[in-house]
Design a protein around this nucleic acid. Structure first.
Lengths: 116, 116
DNA sequence: ACAGATGGCTCGGAATCCGATATACCGGAG
DNA sequence: CTCCGGTATATCGGATTCCGAGCCATCTGT
C-alpha cells in the first residue's frame, strides 16, 4: 500500500514549520515568518529566502494554495492556505516524527540502563 | 541562559538518524545506513554521500568519535560512538521535536473543531 | 526627519544532499 | 571458475536547498 503522502517525506525543517504555521490559520508570508518564530520560541528563524523557496515548492506540489481573502485595508497581503493534501502530508510527517521520538527515547533510556 | 546544544539545532534529517542509530550501540558506517533504514521501516534511506558528509560534520563538532573497538574478524570496520555532547544534542533535538509534534496536534485538532 | 516595524520579493554564494562510482574481500549460484 | 550480490569504506560532482543581504514601499512613533 503506497501512501500518497510518502513521496514528500521527510519534509525540510522549513516546510514543516510553514505547514504548521498555516495549520492554525491562513497567513501571509511575513506572518508565516513570525508565527514560525513564535511557535518555536525563537529557536527556529525562517528567513525570506528559505520561506519563498519552500513556499513555491509547496504551492507547485499542491500542499498550499493562495487564498482570495480580500482584505480591503491592505491589498499587499497575499494569504496562503493549507490544502487537504497539505494537511494530510503534515499529519503523515507528524506521525513519522512521533516514531522517531519514541525510538530515540527508547535508545537513550536503554543506554543508561545498559550500564548496570 | 544560552544552551550549549542550541547552536546545532535543528539537525538535518540525516544527522538525526545517524545520532539515533548510534544512541543504541556503536556502529560502523555501513551499519548506520542499515540501522537508519530499519528504524524508519525503510522510509528513510541514507546514501553513502549523505552519511559521510554528515559523519564528518558530527566528528568535527565532537558529537561522534571514532572508537577503537578492535574487532579481529573484520579490520575494515571503523566504529563510531556517540559522545556526551552528541547525546545531549540528540536529547535537545528530540525535546524540540516533541514541541513541534504537540503544536501540530493542537493546530490540526483545532482546525477540525473550528468548523462547528 | 529618521528609525524601525510591517509587508513584499529577488539574488547569488554557501552549504547540503545524495546517487554514481571506485576499491576490495567474501560466499554462493551457475 | 566466473560472475554476481552483499559487506564495507570513501570520494566526486551536479543538483538542490538554504538563507541572509539587499531592494522597494508604507505607516507609526520619536
Amino acid at each position: 500500500m503506497i501512501n500518497e503522502t510518502d513521496q514528500f517525506l521527510p519534509l525540510s525543517a522549513a516546510s514543516l514549520h510553514i505547514l504548521l504555521a498555516l495549520a492554525g490559520e491562513d497567513l501571509h508570508g511575513y506572518g508565516i515568518m513570525l508565527e514560525a518564530a513564535r511557535q518555536s520560541k525563537g529557536r527556529y528563524k525562517l528567513g525570506p529566502g528559505t520561506l519563498y523557496d519552500n513556499l513555491k515548492k509547496l504551492l507547485s506540489a499542491g500542499m498550499v494554495e493562495e487564498s482570495r481573502r480580500t482584505v480591503e485595508d491592505d491589498p499587499r497581503r497575499r494569504y496562503y492556505r493549507l490544502t487537504g493534501l497539505g494537511r494530510r502530508v503534515l499529519g503523515a510527517e507528524i506521525a513519522r516524527l512521533e516514531g522517531v521520538v519514541r525510538a530515540a527515547k527508547t535508545a537513550l533510556a536503554g543506554a543508561k540502563l545498559r550500564r548496570a
